[in-house]
Design a protein around this nucleic acid. Sequence first.
DNA 1: GACGATACGGATAGGCCACTCCGTTTGTCC
DNA 2: GGACAAACGGAGTGGCCTATCCGTATCGTC
Lengths: 208, 208
Amino acid sequence: MTTDQTPPDTGTKPLRADARRNRARLLEVAEAVFTERGTGASTEEIAREAKVGIATVFRHFPTKEALWEAVLVRRLQRLAEEGRRLMTESGPAHAFFAFFDLVLDQSPVKNAFAAALADAGVDVRAATSEAGRALREVLVALLDGAQRAGVVRRDLEVPELTAILVGTCRMLEHLDGHPESAKRARAVVRDGMRAHPGSRGGRGRPHS
Amino acid sequence: MTTDQTPPDTGTKPLRADARRNRARLLEVAEAVFTERGTGASTEEIAREAKVGIATVFRHFPTKEALWEAVLVRRLQRLAEEGRRLMTESGPAHAFFAFFDLVLDQSPVKNAFAAALADAGVDVRAATSEAGRALREVLVALLDGAQRAGVVRRDLEVPELTAILVGTCRMLEHLDGHPESAKRARAVVRDGMRAHPGSRGGRGRPHS
DNA sequence: GACGATACGGATAGGCCACTCCGTTTGTCC
DNA sequence: GGACAAACGGAGTGGCCTATCCGTATCGTC
């Protein structure tokens, strides 16, 4: 909770108490609003929902895009954290799919997370790509562990893994309200990533 | 509302020659622009690119949303058509995956198509859901044929199939410029939909 | 509790965009 | 080829949205 997420270095002066609280609340609310209404949601709405003036929003985040970026970074950081936790708590064979499920469960709502991962992949800003890099490292470890354990097809690599997560998020978003279909869609992707039982340890799949 | 959209039926008065051409060109251009810049693209840009005044756009499509809807319907119609063609040209075992690839190849560019399918699934307007219904029928036939032929897992149903197409579009969009990764991501989904070689004809998968 | 610095809030500027009005052009039919 | 309706073009309008200015309130420190 504490986690003054903005890098604690950069010689930034200690923020005043209320400012600190407002900033945190803004990030919270912004994440919710962006998640619900998409990036097109107006800054005014976020301000209203966070019970601050618009000026306060722009004081903390010089631009709307900067706010979006900050929300993004927070998400990526949390995700990387949870990935690391899973790796130490479960064995490598389980951690990978646990993370897969966690990602998909975490954002049952809308597309914001997909956008987050998407942007991370494309490496937008410095901060974002910093957090994105951390997450990517976790993904590498998870994937490698699962492949060594023989539970994930060997030909899978990180770039497409990111895309698969993004795409599957979209699938589930689209199946919101149809839990049975969502379960099956998820199973399709999960099974597709699984090492083929027949081809023990070999390349991923016999043909195309 | 009545929706004087593309089909020359519904007793709509015969359009003047130039009007007809403009309308067609507008749809063409709008599809391209929406596909490239997203739904946020300005109507003015579409008008400019189509070499007509803005008023002409709004004369043919009373609202921006109506224009988007018309583009959508066109896409869905074309897709259903191609699905039907595939069904008669190839055997049922091949048609399903051929359609899968066709959908994914057809929109290598951006998200517009995904949005199309997505909206179709949720059934937005009357016209859209009409076209959407036609496409859904094709999907039913394709899926059923492939399942009878034993090449697609039995537990797959149409709702998640739509979502899978949408989500996979997004995957590939995200992997634009990385053809190898895109190929593997596509393989993951395709293999996930395939009937498991071990479980012959049975339910889709042993567990969760 | 008082003072300086820091942060806040609301009114507002400025830009973009969907949509309209009306004078002008173009197609169609005789 | 002429007349009438249909369609066109583009300037204009109103609304929304990002971003800023400045007077006011709050924090932190003595």
